[in-house]
Design a protein around this nucleic acid. Structure first.
Lengths: 247, 247
DNA sequence: GTGGCATAACTGGTAAGTCCAGTAAAAGTT
DNA sequence: AACTTTTACTGGACTTACCAGTTATGCCAC
């Protein structure tokens, strides 16, 4: 019942081939980073037509498992969590109905922990880069709005990176497209808001730098909640349920 | 550059077609649940060969966006998180065992909040359904392992639904397909673990029912931490890696 | 009329052959 | 030895054809 497999009833050849090729990658017969045999070779090797081979390769390509370009042989992609992140925008858009409020709630859930974990796990490099981003942000706060919003997101993602868990920056990046859009709407015409957000950013940075995990989380939550709260109070988001974001 | 394109340089026809078809789904020109035109129609409509059409459809099929079966027209699937969930086993084999730990960390971030929010927002229906699931889980704890693991996940997802934010169950579902797999390995041969998990579930349920948000979050965190700790400390990860993903 | 059944008109799945256009390595030239 | 040209790959795309499920059509018996 649960369609957990792309391959369903193992009916069509291309679906079967999909499993076989996937297995070759799993077993290491087709090592990551190296190129697989050409399509003409594959069709004789598996005893199928080139159509079936190409359709199977299309599937693997769509999933980001293969890297194909004209004239060169397909290469098994370094499969990182990145591809999951690439699918999230698809999910979100296709599911529809997601309001920005929902995204903010998820962001709150994720980032309150990334701030916490980052404070515990951050390296010297993390601190240095965050410091740079903060300075850049400080400049841009008085200049271009679009740039500052982008840097803002980069700052948050950089914190997620500092956790050491690659899935966190991934999720954040996936949600980012939504966030930046709303953020621009919010700050347009209200420069003081940007300075207020700037203060939060500095507080978060200092807490992470000083490895004060609890404080980092608290500041992050306040920061996000004030952002979300602003949007909610202004009808920029389909507000609806009065969800207590208190934590 | 933007993480939204699975289609890279958009050079080849099939990649372009992919974007176009995806757009038709987004705009609602191809409504979810309904069937799209036949391949012969599509090739004239887009002015390409059937090869290109079929390769594009293969991509959409691989992502779980289309549901295709022989003799019938392809149907636009209600996009769910399965697609992402399917990729996690693959992720793990290609990226290494740390991924398990990473997934649990993300789960912890998300579920500690879903428990909290569910306690605040839960409706009577939520309580009723959770109660049912709990009872079902109680029975299955002494019976089939596979079923109980599935019900376990349903229980967690149901909590995420009770938050009112549709993204939470989505994320959980995506992570879940991956988690259940490991969970089975963990509990196999250790029935007492299942009873211990059962106690946690009951505590979480009661807290949500009584709208004790802080308590709900605490129990959830304890529950997940104990689970994650078990997996990580017992080398179940390597065992999982050695097992092929296709059922 | 209506029910059941064979047929025809769809649908997707697969195959073989052909050609084009990039890429990279082999062969030639300087 | 360094550069350029050729050649033998590679994937990308098209056409035609046929097979195999599915569904709608329509006929015939009741």
């Amino acid at each position: 019942m649960k369609a957990t497999d792309v391959t369903q009833k193992s009916s069509s050849i291309s679906r079967q081939l999909f499993d076989k090729m996937l297995q070759r990658i799993h077993t290491g017969q087709w090592p990551v980073g190296k190129s697989i045999p050409g399509e003409r070779v594959l069709m004789t090797e598996f005893g199928v037509s080139r159509i079936s081979v190409r359709e199977t390769l299309s599937m693997l390509r769509a999933l980001g498992i293969l890297d194909t370009s004209h004239g060169r042989r397909s290469v098994v992609r370094k499969m990182n969590a990145e591809i999951v992140g690439r699918l999230f925008p698809l999910l979100l858009t296709l599911e529809g109905e997601q309001t920005y409020e929902h995204v903010f709630e998820v962001r709150l859930a994720i980032e309150s922990r990334t701030a916490y974990m980052a404070a515990l796990n951050r390296s010297q490099d993390d601190v240095a880069e965050l410091s740079q981003l903060l300075e850049l942000l400080r400049k841009q706060t008085q200049e271009t709005l679009e740039d500052s919003v982008k840097t803002d997101l980069r700052f948050h993602i950089r914190i997620a990176q500092a956790t050491g868990n690659p899935i966190f920056p991934l999720l954040l990046d996936a949600l980012g497209g939504f966030v930046t859009y709303v953020q621009e709407l919010s700050c347009r015409g209200n420069p003081d808001r940007r300075t207020r957000a700037m203060q939060y950013h500095e507080a978060i940075f200092e807490a992470i730098r000083d490895q004060d995990a609890e404080h980092a989380r608290g500041e992050m939550e306040s920061h996000l909640r004030s952002s979300a709260g602003r949007f909610l109070s202004e009808g920029l988001i389909k507000a609806a349920r009065a969800t207590p974001l208190t934590g």
